[in-house]
Amino acid sequence: MTVLTSQNTPQRAISIRSPTIRIVIACTAFAVLLAAPIVLPAYFVEIGFKLLIYIVLAEAWNLLAGYGGLVSLGTSSFFGLGAYVTVGLINHAGAGPLQALAASALAGIAVAIVMSRGLFRLRGLYFTVGTLALAEALRLFVINVPWFGGATGLFVTVDLPEIAALFRYATLLLALAALVMALATGSRFSVLLRAVRDDEDAAGQVGVRAFRIKLAAFIVASALIASAGGLQAIKLGAIEPYGSFGLQWSVDPLAIVIIGGLGMRFGAIVGAVLFVAIGELLADYPELHVAITGVTLILLIRFAPRGICGLAEAALRRRGAAPREARP
């Protein structure tokens, strides 16, 4: 981990671990992404947009589950929430896409805060079931309350930005997610968050206010997920409860992170690239797609519980032959 590197290892002058180098790499990557729609064919921009959305969702889920031990199946509740808030504001308040997305992030935060009291009382599997119930409840709410168009949903009634612009919004959202994740996983906060994940009671005994720590992670993740939901809604131009609150939005990020590496810094990105690539290659064979993803998951869980990034890390460590500490 990067938080305490000064412990034993002398800082090397230039290395991939140096913060400056990392920032330069990250900025370059985002500059390239922003420019990408100019040169890429529309088909790849489409896929790229999908990939970016998935990375954001997976990063958020990894923050909750991988770093915080909060295994959530409620991604779809915040995704759908963001979608409805965004479309509502665009249609009825004349909001621009960016304003609408910001508002949906705020809505995500508000719901996260309201739900946290009840949800954090539940631990482990009960928390997971609680988040699942939340998604279901929100969907039923949207279907049954008259303002949201019932089961048919809503259409965006104004002109939509084109895909290149959406791709850039998604890039900005990812940049935001990357920044937040860098702060949340490379900072002192991450030490506290992982302590809560490892043993909430023991963390309390050393002064960690577990509720606040979990809430902070939950808020950040919910804001990111809700914005992603809003962006997806703008892209589709139409939303309906079964799509926006679909279980797939909860399960896919989970699959992505498990493939990439739970609690691993690059788990979300690696997993999302693979997931989307498999999805595109097998777009014409949806059954095969599901089967292959399932088998991949089973194999990884059985043989590489820390996903592809975990495998890579182990391989790197073996090559570097860093001798493991003795366990006398």
Binding site: M1, Q7, R188, V191, L192, D199, D201, A202, A203, R209
Partner: peptide
């Protein structure tokens, strides 16, 4: 009951950072 997936130094840092961030 140590924090099993954290290093020994990080185990100590938890208390430090939570009391004086």
């Amino acid at each position: 009951r140590p924090f099993l997936d954290m290093t020994v130094a990080e185990n100590l840092a938890v208390g430090q950072f939570s009391l004086s961030p």
